[in-house]
Amino acid sequence: MHISEAMLTDSLEGNLALGAGMALAAAGTAVGLRKMDYERIPQVAVLSSAFFVASLIQIPGPIAVHLVLNGLMGLILGWAVFPAVLIALVLQAVLFLAGGLTAVGVNTVVMALPAIVCYYALNRSARSASEPVAFLAGFAAGATGVLLGIFLAAAALITAGEEFKLLGEGAVLWHLPVAVIDGLITGSAVVFLRKVRPELLEAPLLANQVEVTHG
């Protein structure tokens, strides 16, 4: 789901999309950092390393599919997802040279904005007393994360030039099965967490409480 900077920067509109991505990513990261106090840094860091590692899991099948899991990240991290994704992308750019430095902003928004949407829309139902509801909320989070992300990425590309329309549409089609797979896995993960460590699904809420008590 990475956009390459070279593709985006071939036109003025693309450069503007790149700049808008940077501004949005900076704003989201600022909110995320404000909502996360120093004591929560190790927690967010360890969880985001876990997501980084989990995204290396490959699903067997006709096409090579990597897990994205940004919906699940949203449910568990809340606003901290912005700084967490930003750092994961910087590390990816440095370690694997994926994405490039100037596109880090756009790519952060592509991953983190859908995660925030999932957090607000589905956080309550993911903690529901009924297991099927929790599974469905998890499925919706996984699928929404991937679909909304690829829509944002395609929109950025098409802003850069009409000639990318075919590629953008192709990318969206390609991600339809990915969204289903990510949804099923996120659904199972939510059901598992609900039984084993329900606090995890409440972690972003706890963070706000800590902020309040500290004044």
């Binding site: 927690q43 360890v46 876990a50 699903i59 896995i185 084993v196 995890l200």
Partner: peptide, 16 residues
């Protein structure tokens, strides 16, 4: 897919 979901969940629990 369910098993991978539990694997992801377990990874998160351990890191938490």
């Amino acid at each position: 897919l369910a098993t991978y979901g539990y694997l992801v969940g377990m990874l998160l629990v351990r890191s938490f």
